[in-house]
Amino acid sequence: MGGLTVNTKLLRQILVGFVRDEVYKVGVRKGVLGLSGGIDSALVAYIAAEALGPENVHAYCMPYRTSNPESEAHARLVAESLGIKFKVIEITPMIDAYFTLTPDADNMRRGNKMARERMTILYDHSAAVGGLVLGTSNKTELLLGYGTLHGDMASALNPIGDIYKSQVWALSEAMGVPSEVIEKKPSADLWAGQTDEQELGFTYREADELLYRMVDQRMSREELVAAGFDAAFIDNVARKVQGSHFKRRLPIIAKVSNRTIDRDFRYARDWGK
């Protein structure tokens, strides 16, 4: 569909410029990111390497014992093709130690804990190497809320948060991300055989086509139905967007003073930069 097709050359220029400019203006030269072996973090690694130079990109692969070994192999492949700094940090000891306290925790709690464990490691390394944590959540998963608050959704800067998964695929191809990373099924890799699309109940392509019209073009429900989208699918996606909105906002603050942070105390984050 027209709207999701992007001029990848221009998109690359904007996103590379974004990472360079926003990292440098903070007064550091480095970027830190988690490399899962999936396409989103691979693309961010490519953007960061071009923006900051491969020697200034620190990538960490943080597998748990149930992670698919192929994920680590793909993360390594991405790091080696780019020549960025790469380290594997197993999170099994920390996660298992914690869950001995509550052995009955379900998959969701375990998955969230792993995502947050990884983010604490990234922020610790951000301080250790003097770099900013780069976010790897795309617009599709941010809108659907398919991520862990304060986990993989955390970051200092996110170069791909305004591009849909379909656009991530297109840009990854244009930037030379290895084809095995582009072609494999997207997975949160929390347990063997898990795939995003199976868990969501629809494909990313389907979601992108709908979200683009719903969010970017602000088409009404009637217009979406007329355009051929299934009403139940529209409602399901709309519910996910609204239901996950809290994940995309800062915590709300009880107002008592005349100047409350973010409400009537408003400054850009790039204040003075």
Binding site: G2, G3, T5, V6, N7, L10, L11, I14
Partner: peptide, 11 residues
Amino acid sequence: PGRGVTESEGL
């Protein structure tokens, strides 16, 4: 502000 990255040549 630059916005509107589509399949076109420019923004």
